[in-house]
Amino acid sequence: MRFYVNNFCYLSAENKTMLSDERHCFDKSDLPKLDWVSPIQRRRLSAFTKMALHCASEVNSERANCPVVFSSRHGDLHKTASLLDSLALKESLSPTGFSMSVHNATAGLFSILTNNQAASNTVSAGKESLLMALVDAYAKLKSDNLDQVLVVHCDQALPIEYLGYQDEKQIDHCLAMLISKSIATGEELTIERSEKKPLNEDALLPHGIMIGQFLRSKNSRCLLQGRHNNWSVKALT
């Protein structure tokens, strides 16, 4: 795949003090303020949704009617875990909480709040969720004759109850990119698959963080380890 990243926004709690349960999480005071969202709506938003809406809005600041591909490995798992706790205690579920726990809730909310009437979809593909979102966005650029696609990836550190299943470092993060197939003002990238080989311990970082760090650093190459193969991300400009 070859495309241009015309704009990006990256948030990560990787530099926050690690909690005793091995997670890097944003404090409530660290989360984006979302001044462009009405107060009554902001109060209903989870940390996951605030991160995703902030990065998406920063990248598409002109509110262009742009197709969107959201991705997340776990979705708003903290909200889902809270709902499961309520079920276990035989308590009634919050209708708002339930509606915002589904995997594509943030994508729908972004469309409503920004009046974005273009198509959107949400991808979940395990550790490679962001990469598969980029594959989907690239396919849209090539087949639908689109000028650009907004890609948004968001994940949080797992709730304590799920830490026994972790296979990567647990860090709150979000990455949004506005990609196109023709040069504008951005950086040209290629993404290629290769045979799976052991990588260094950075392979334990979520792909969203590794690509976010790569875009910030202006390095020429980033290697990612997937389930069945490795991926090479290269900057050509």
Rank of each mutant, 00 (worst) to 15 (best):
Y4G: 08
N6L: 04
S12K: 09
A13R: 00
N15M: 06
N15S: 10
K16M: 10
K16A: 08
T17C: 09
T17N: 12
F26V: 06
P32G: 08
D35W: 03
W36R: 05
V37L: 03
S38P: 01
R44M: 00
L45Q: 05
L45Y: 01
F48H: 07
H54D: 15
C55Q: 07
S57V: 01
S57L: 02
N65P: 02
V68F: 00
V68L: 09
S71W: 01
S71Q: 03
S72M: 05
L77I: 13
A81D: 14
A81I: 08
L83P: 11
A88K: 11
L89G: 03
E91S: 05
T96G: 03
F98S: 10
H103P: 09
G108E: 12
S111E: 11
A118Y: 00
A119L: 09
V123L: 03
L134H: 02
D144W: 00
D147H: 06
V152H: 00
E161Q: 10
E168L: 05
Q170A: 02
C174K: 09
C174D: 07
A176S: 09
E187Y: 01
E192M: 04
N200Y: 04
E201C: 04
D202H: 14
L204W: 06
L204D: 14
L205G: 02
F214K: 04
R216V: 02
R216E: 15
L223G: 09
L224C: 05
W231N: 11
K234T: 08
